[in-house]
Amino acid sequence: MILKIFSNNYIINITKSLPRGVYRILPSEEFKKDDIVVFEIPEETKKYLFDRKYVPSIVTSMMKKVASEKIDDVIEINNNNELIINSKNWGKVYKYDSYGRKLPEIDVKKMKVQKGEIFLLSDYSDRSFDGRYFGVVPISSIKYKVELFFRF
């Protein structure tokens, strides 16, 4: 869950998906690999998150790292169930959540980042609910680019 504070220039992250701390909002409309962004959760994903009680129903945005923004990136899941993008290992893709409930599976063989889309992940926590489970999101859903200002 993220909280917006200080005249709308900073956000507090209290989740395990990225380092906990205060993040500064950066003026930017361009997003590249390894940028951290805040995005509006797609409606179908919101319903899933709320039904599973992964987040409270007041949460409308999430913060993740840009893993792919290019059409020609190679996205695959290897034999160890790890997500690999252009030879970078982004961690496990789990079939079940920590309560033993089945997680959604995306078909990475069919998934390619298209123009106007972005693939968002967490390389900080292997249990983050991210693009491994909801796929790509429209770039138009990105609200901010942020950087870690103060870690706690």
Rank of each mutant, 00 (worst) to 15 (best):
L3T: 14
I5S: 06
I5M: 02
N8C: 09
K16D: 15
K16E: 15
S17D: 02
L18D: 03
P19E: 07
R20F: 05
R20W: 05
R20A: 11
G21I: 06
V22Q: 03
P27W: 07
P27L: 09
P27H: 13
E29L: 08
E30K: 14
D34H: 13
D35S: 06
D35T: 05
F39C: 10
E40A: 01
E40Q: 04
P42K: 00
T45Q: 10
K46R: 14
Y48R: 13
L49G: 10
R52A: 12
R52W: 09
Y54G: 07
V55A: 07
I58N: 11
T60A: 05
K64N: 14
K64C: 11
A67V: 12
A67M: 13
S68I: 04
I71W: 01
D72H: 04
E76P: 00
E76F: 03
I77S: 08
N78V: 00
L83G: 10
I85E: 04
K88E: 03
N89R: 01
N89V: 06
Y94K: 14
Y96Q: 12
Y96C: 06
P104C: 10
V108L: 01
K110I: 07
Q114D: 06
Q114V: 01
K115N: 14
G116S: 07
F119R: 00
L120N: 12
L121F: 08
S122W: 01
Y124S: 04
F129P: 00
D130C: 13
D130K: 08
R132A: 08
G135H: 14
V137T: 08
V137A: 11
P138G: 02
P138Y: 11
S140N: 02
S140R: 08
S141V: 04
I142A: 11
K145E: 03
V146S: 03
E147M: 09
F150H: 12
R151Y: 12
